[in-house]
Design a binder for these strands. Structure first.
Lengths: 348, 348
DNA sequence: TCGGTTTAACGAAACGTTTCGACAGGTCCC
DNA sequence: GGGACCTGTCGAAACGTTTCGTTAAACCGA
């Protein structure tokens, strides 16, 4: 067995409380001599404090929970999650918190999930991109568990951090519009996730504002995945009348879309412009490099963690915060070809 | 306060032990009537078991620790770590283990790190790509803590999972050699990490076996990072006599190397071949797509976790396992140009 | 010298579980 | 009808801490 505070107490013929005071430097004082004895004995015996026992009495674990979106296996392959978790981890390190990742989200219902979250191991939870169909976040918040969400849009009654999705969509569509595009397609993400839905709505709103008729066939679904984007792009490019530009709801699908253009021998951006969303690292390396919308995902993670720790410390939670986006123009977007070669895009 | 087992006992005028038996279905039997009463009361009171208290007495937390390599901020941006952790998380979910990520590695010395690891929150630890200069792994193993390492090479006295780095290097260098390359450069990783060192040694061994003289200036250091690879490639391409092919110790540096060729207006693979190592997702998307060595990082993570849980359950640890690698040939490598245009590579 | 404060230490309760020893009552079998 | 055995329950100890109430001694100023 590992050595405990009691072993030290026995060895030195002291009470455990004295040893505890000596080890922690409080809350009562001990004589310098005692303190040195205890420290020496602790070293000799290879004592290591048991944080589980401590957290039983203090109620603090200095560990925060991270709940990824329920997307089955391979959650950690999502660049979005990677960036968010990286931000959380960076800030957690600074604030001396460890990070408990719940790996069993997928197989659980709200009740079971809540039990996992509330079982005492963590002081609070960060939900990353929760499905808005899942009510776990709201329930957890209602049960007084400190928690925050990084999500597509503010969550009712929960401290949440999101980006201005409408703004981002407007930026990228405005860019395409100004390049001269009028037939703009959209590859949508998982529509059970806030970001996907709001970006699609932003797309529709933009068309409406510009008085461009909405065509159902110009919207394809890509599930936020590379392969989904690839399939969706095949669909769009096989239409009798193709879009001249495609805005994708995330970079992974945009990468898939570009891979589809390789398949089909279509040139980007000469024959079709492709834009992404998120500004993941890969977006800069694909050929051609992606025009995309930068959202400060890592920063969201950092701020979310900082706020969560704040809430745990007992401070008033802020209600929400919305981050701004930037357009990053790279080589995957340009003027539509028909301005140069009239009609050439109608080929099938 | 959250409701406890004692609240249920009070409400029903039972002893806590009976309630515990009813809730857990053992180890003693309870009457069906009692059981139903307890279950109903638990539901009514919103009871959730406190796993911290349970793990105090059982000694099991059903949580495994993940210790990333000590590489400062932005650990989660490393594709290698992402793939490994993804594998660990997948398998952890299946085996009902949560994953505690230690975020404070960087600021701690062995002793402090050990205290964090051994503080009772985890049943065992997976070390991912530990520096071989850091002795934390060995110390943890010596202290009887179940632990495994995913690392560049087997670690003395520790159950470890690694890939056959020599094999991988031989595969990629053989490929370049057969394409006709004789002036082969190498961009090395962080030489305080096993993988980097062994790959460099593999490079040297290959040259020796092929009787190609080793040139110091053909080896540049890239720290396993994109920017490092880019800088290193600039160095190599500015040599009076350039290598005609460059093997990089990981894909990120290879991507950096390709970015460098963009900077310099050098064509890949026409003027210089570039090969990576790891087969990360991005390697397939960079232009041109990277020839690289596939190592089953995710699988390593899965097997490591499964083995760790096995050890926790008390089974004999296996000593180590070495995984095989495959060469993936893509468009970034080809015959050296000088076979076609003699001497053209000497231009500076 | 005396009351009051400070310092140092002890013992015990508490956190929420699990599980062992004990015991009462019932059933079974020869 | 008496031991052996099972079933259901209780009380208490244990896990390793922190911290409160208490006490005894030392110290201080008037």
């Amino acid at each position: 067995m590992a050595t405990s505070i009691k072993d030290i107490a026995n060895k030195l013929n002291m009470s455990v409380s004295t040893v505890s005071y000596a080890l922690n430097g409080g809350p009562r004082s001990v004589s310098l001599e005692t303190k040195n004895q205890v420290l020496a004995a602790a070293r000799d015996l290879g004592y290591r404090p048991n944080r589980v026992a401590r957290s039983m009495v203090t109620g603090r674990s200095y560990t925060i929970g991270v709940a990824p979106p329920e997307i089955g296996d391979d959650v950690f392959l999502s660049p979005y999650l990677q960036l968010a978790i990286n931000g959380v981890a960076n800030e957690a390190g600074r604030l001396h918190q460890d990070m408990l990742v719940f790996t069993r989200y997928r197989e659980t219902e709200h009740e079971e999930m809540l039990s996992i979250i509330l079982d005492g191991r963590v002081d609070g939870v960060i939900f990353i991109a929760p499905h808005f169909t899942a009510k776990t976040v709201e329930l957890a918040a209602a049960l007084q568990l400190p928690c925050v969400a990084i999500s597509g849009a503010p969550v009712e009654g929960v401290t949440s951090f999101s980006i201005n999705n409408e703004q981002g969509m407007t930026q990228v569509l405005e860019h395409l519009y100004e390049l001269g595009h009028r037939r703009i397609g959209h590859i949508a993400g998982r529509l059970d996730m806030q970001d996907a839905l709001i970006r699609l709505q932003g797309y529709q709103a933009f068309l409406h504002a510009r008085k461009i008729p909405y065509r159902d066939e110009f919207v394809a679904k890509g599930q936020f995945l590379i392969e989904g984007g690839r399939r969706a792009m095949h669909e769009l490019m096989n239409l009798p009348i193709r879009p001249t530009a495609v805005s994708c709801a995330n970079d992974e699908m945009a990468i898939g879309a570009i891979l589809a253009t390789y398949d089909l021998g279509i040139k980007v951006p000469e024959e079709v412009s492709v834009a992404g969303f998120d500004s993941t690292p890969s977006s800069a390396h694909i050929h051609p490099p992606l025009t995309t919308v930068r959202q400060p995902i890592g920063e969201l993670g950092e701020v979310a963690l900082r706020t969560l720790v704040d809430m745990i410390e007992g401070n008033e939670p802020q209600e929400k915060k919305v981050f701004e986006t930037d357009l990053i123009v790279r080589a995957s977007t340009n003027h539509p070809m028909e301005e140069i070669h009239e009609g050439s895009l109608y080929s099938h």
